[in-house]
Every structure is written in C-alpha cells, then in structure tokens.
Simulated scan of single mutants.
Amino acid sequence: MQFSPIKRTLQAVLLLVASAAAGAEPPEILTSIKPLQLIAQELTEGVTEVDVLLKPGSSPHSHSLKPSDARKLKSADVIFWVGPSMEAFLPKILGGLKDTKSVAMMEAHGINLRSMEEDDNHIHDDHGHAHDHDEYDPHIWLSTDNARVMAKAMVKTLVSVDPANKKQYEKNLEVFGQRLNQADEDNLVKVKTAGTRPFFVFHNAYGYLEEQYGFQVAGFFTTNPDYQPGANHLVQLQEKLQKAGSACIFREPQFQPAYIDRLSEGLDIEVGVLDPLAEDIEPGSDSYARFINSMVDTITDCLQEPLPESLLGSSAG
C-alpha cells in the first residue's frame, strides 16, 4: 500500500514529535525545604532528581537569599514551597520568574491548616483560596494527611509540565500513599503504647504531628526559634517543668540555646533532639515515611518512664 505525500508528511511529523517526547529532558524540580524534597523525590522516582534550596542548618524563618539561591530558582522549571509565612524571603523573587511554575503547598486544595491561636480549633480549607497565612501554622509537612494532599498537588503540577511521564508520577503517588498508610498504622501503635511522661519542645512547630497521632505537648520554649523568648514566658515554663517531675525536652539541631540548660538544671529532665527539617534523612524510597517514623520514635522512646535507680542497680547485679 502506498501513502499519499500528505499522509507521509503527517506520519513523519508524528514520529518526530514522539521521538522528541521520548528523549525530552525531565523538568528541573526544586523545593524550598528538605521535607518537601523528600516527598517530591519519591514522586519523581525513576524520572529525575529533586534539588533543595535550603541546606542543612538553615532556618526557613530567617534565611537570606544568596546569589547562588537566585540562580537555582531561575533555572528551575518547578518550585514547591510552603508559603509566605514560612519562607518570607521567597515571594518577591518568585513573582519575577516568568518561566517557572511555583506552587505554595499551603494553597493546595484540601490542605488542613491549624490556627496559630492555641485555643482555636484548626481550620479545614477545602477550597484552595488565598488566606492571610500569618494566622495559620505553616509546619504543614508534619501531618501525614497533609503530605498526601501535597503529594497529590505535586503530581498534578508534574504531569502538567511533563505529561510524557504521567504514568510514572501516578504510580509513584500510589506507592507513596501505601507507605504512609503503613507508617500511620505503625505510629499509632507506638503512641498508644508509649509512656506518659510530659514533654516540652523548642518551638511551637509540632501541632500537626500532635493532631495526627494524639500527642500532647506540655509546653514550648519559643514561638519563633530565631528570637529569645520573653522573661515572663520562661518563668512560666520553668514552673511547668518543676511541676512536671520526670519530663522530656526536645531541642532542634540548628538551635542550642543556653536557657534550655538553665531551666532544666537540677530537674529530672531528659534532653533529646527533634529535627522537623529532616536534616539527617537522605531523599529516596520511603524517605518521608522514615522521617515521620523517626520523629515518632524519638518522642515515644523518651516518654517511657525511666527505671528507678534501685531497680537499675539490682538489674546490673
């Protein structure tokens, strides 16, 4: 059978398009912080590597944009970030990037936003409308329910810029959900069987984790990790620590304020480290679940009441 010149031309064009699509470079994906990188890397597994803007030791609350950061942002095809109330340094430069798709996770459809007011109930946003985000806790990645929402939003964006890998992204999303289901099942058991020691955290970043698994933080040292808490707050916190008896305190890797040692001096306090920015977790398969599991393990391990010294002595003999 012979094809007409028009059909042959059309066939050649289709082959060129298919060939170009098959050999197209995957998009360059950038996230603002490590926890978002963990999620995005699982979703792009088998397609591309995801880079992160803030390196270990950097605080998204107070980061100053460097020339190297600006170059990374300008070369990215897609940028996933939390929102203006977390990365205050980003909105201005993102507004000038015409060829880059930036997606704020606090705007994801269906994300659960908790009020910053301790006594207020959290807010469910099912509409994806803009908010005054300063009213809401931006540490949204510490909820596995929110991680599912963010992953779905990420895949929607990835498919829009890279439709050739749609099936792979959607397959990765399904696997990601299965891993989170298992993590939730395991972590709920850990929390249910954990001890009852009160615990205190460095700053009020853990509300989503509390809500997800039923933890209850007894107190926090500061609302902003980059500033010294007020004297009145520290006095009240010291009273809480004294009343708590045996307790746990969790600081964070980037911050080692001397006032934690001062307030816990002479008390039955165990000091540990919680890392809400996942500095020690390598991106890859099940990295987000490993991150959440490590947070839960750190807390529940410390919540176990220590054995009395008399029992420790007898068991040693």
Rank of each mutant, 00 (worst) to 15 (best):
Q168I: 10
S64H: 07
R262K: 13
F199S: 00
V235Q: 14
L303T: 06
G245A: 06
H129T: 10
L65Q: 03
V161K: 06
Q168S: 13
S315F: 15
D280Q: 11
K166G: 03
N181D: 11
N172V: 03
E185K: 11
R197I: 06
H233C: 03
D186S: 13
L16V: 13
N224V: 10
D137W: 03
F89R: 01
V191K: 00
I299W: 00
V50S: 02
V189S: 06
D134R: 12
R71S: 12
V217H: 01
P27S: 13
F215A: 03
L209Y: 00
N172A: 12
K74F: 12
V175K: 09
E117R: 11
N172W: 02
P138H: 05
G128Q: 08
F89W: 04
I79E: 08
L14D: 09
K152T: 13
K72H: 10
S58T: 10
L173E: 01
I281Y: 01
Q228E: 14
A88Y: 01
M154T: 06
M154Y: 08
P229V: 06
F202I: 04
T144Y: 03
P5F: 04
Q242S: 12
R290A: 04
G313R: 05
S287N: 10
E211K: 09
P27E: 14
G313F: 11
G57A: 13
I79P: 03
K166F: 08
P308D: 11
H139Q: 05
S32H: 07
V13C: 13
S143I: 07
F221M: 04
P138K: 04
T222H: 01
A278M: 03
Y227V: 14
F255V: 05
A21T: 12
R251E: 07
L307A: 14
I79G: 03
E25R: 06
T157F: 02
Y259G: 01
T48G: 09
E211Y: 10
D275V: 04
T144E: 13
E49I: 08
W141K: 05
E107G: 05
N224H: 08
S75V: 05
I33W: 00
D132A: 13
V47E: 05
D126F: 15
Q168M: 08
D77V: 07
A147S: 09
Q41I: 15
D162H: 07
L173C: 04
M116N: 10
Q256P: 15
G57T: 08
G46C: 08
Q41E: 14
G207H: 00
L274S: 00
S143Q: 05
